[in-house]
Design a protein around this nucleic acid. Sequence first.
DNA 1: TAGTGGTCTAGACCACATC
DNA 2: ATGTGGTCTAGACCACTAA
Lengths: 285, 285
Amino acid sequence: MIDTFLHIRDASRPLVIMAAVSHLSPVLAAEARSDPDGAAMAGPAPAFSPLYQQIKQLILQGLQRGEWRPGEVIPSEFELAARYKVSQGTVRKAVDELAAEHLLVRRQGRGTFVATHAEQQVQYRFLRLHPDQGAVDGEGPAQRDFVDCRRARASADVARALGLRTGDSVLQSRRLLRFGGVPTILEDLWLPGGPFKGLTAERLMDYHGPMYALFEAEFGVRMVRADERIRAVLPDAAQARLLAVDASTPLLSVERIAYTYNDVPMELRRGLYRTDTHHYRNQLN
Amino acid sequence: MIDTFLHIRDASRPLVIMAAVSHLSPVLAAEARSDPDGAAMAGPAPAFSPLYQQIKQLILQGLQRGEWRPGEVIPSEFELAARYKVSQGTVRKAVDELAAEHLLVRRQGRGTFVATHAEQQVQYRFLRLHPDQGAVDGEGPAQRDFVDCRRARASADVARALGLRTGDSVLQSRRLLRFGGVPTILEDLWLPGGPFKGLTAERLMDYHGPMYALFEAEFGVRMVRADERIRAVLPDAAQARLLAVDASTPLLSVERIAYTYNDVPMELRRGLYRTDTHHYRNQLN
DNA sequence: TAGTGGTCTAGACCACATC
DNA sequence: ATGTGGTCTAGACCACTAA
């Protein structure tokens, strides 16, 4: 009968009121203000946001700061609730959204983990090309050959895509992917020199395994989402030769910009896909 | 001080226990069993599911039965909670998921509505083709010309895509979309004859406005999601002429199967997109 | 003013994983 | 045995909408 009195209004009321007030004047403003470059700078700013959204931002900042690295557990919901002075249910809602965006992964009984590209079953996170027949998912490992890989200066369009200035240092490479021995994807890739300082052409060519896993482990760069623009094109002579197709064979041109936290572009890819034996699959909702 | 005692354990305990038990033996089994063709037939069946998932299925059945039509309000969360004998919070979670899948739309202060293709700002729900330059979203209305429209018999591949048998009746049409006068999309379309009984070629050609809105209003068929397979191809002579391009111009081939509730295919489209002035845009998460 | 969805809290119990 | 996330309930208050 005693724990009944944990429910008395006199005890719980103050918290409720505080939460209600914070709806208009965030109680977390102090901690939130430690954000160096406010992402909310653009526009007149909402000036307020639900508590759970503020918590979400705080967790996001922890991820950006590297407080919890990819693959690690983050504190339990109760710990986070205590840290941010909110209820566990509010933390839950914040974590729910981050999990829906694939930034966190919940595992019942174990905890909540920072999403990672390593230690994952899927080799190519953003690749939407599927074989027309055969295996439901994938078709065994691809064979990967680097055609070219070097440091270079960003051209105007590459610089614009990566948010750099023309002439800034970039790492540039071209590689060919074979599925079952058949050359299927020819891909040009550009990485900004700054965030990937220290990454050499040799390191990239010697590395085997998911490229995004390398980026996470060595440079703390996690790709969060990507935009693709798709066209039908004809290959030039070099492209046709590498893909072993006729110059009159239509190919899928896929330009991808991958972003890390806060919509910062971190990678530009221009792929040419053969679609005689494969197709690009997309789900619309 | 009196309402404090609304919290006493003796009063709330029975309900909590019932909810816990229902986790393993659904209290809603009776009503749920009215489902004629169980969608859970495939596999050994989970045999149980969280309460809110059961509620979600019941609401889904209401949508399929047409108990609430597209554009209408569904009962408030409290009404649904009373009907299904669960708390409002549980109904909320069920509705949350249905809203995330775009089957329902919540509007604060007004209610929860059945999603609809009509009365919407977006003309083409599933179209991912964007102009390279110009307007951020769209470029004014498209001009639509029917090249062909008639009843026909399903070929083997069309039948397979629509879950029919070869030779079954289908409505088949070909139309051309122009943006700013420039022919850009050539689209072949097949609809199953059964669900669209009574739909004539004339009716379809005379109708102006979103096609999916017509399907909802006249046939109660709501498209819920779609799968697309994309390739790069060359047009045949007829296609090239209609799109006013050379026969050596690579084009995007987009095959779309659109589904209604319960993953039942309801439409097959084969589109040819010009990508010299437009591109197919995709967001990856 | 009444009713709706939106947010926040609090606590109970379950399923699962680990020790 | 302990701790984690998952489910469910209950109630308070806010923001918005319409009558």
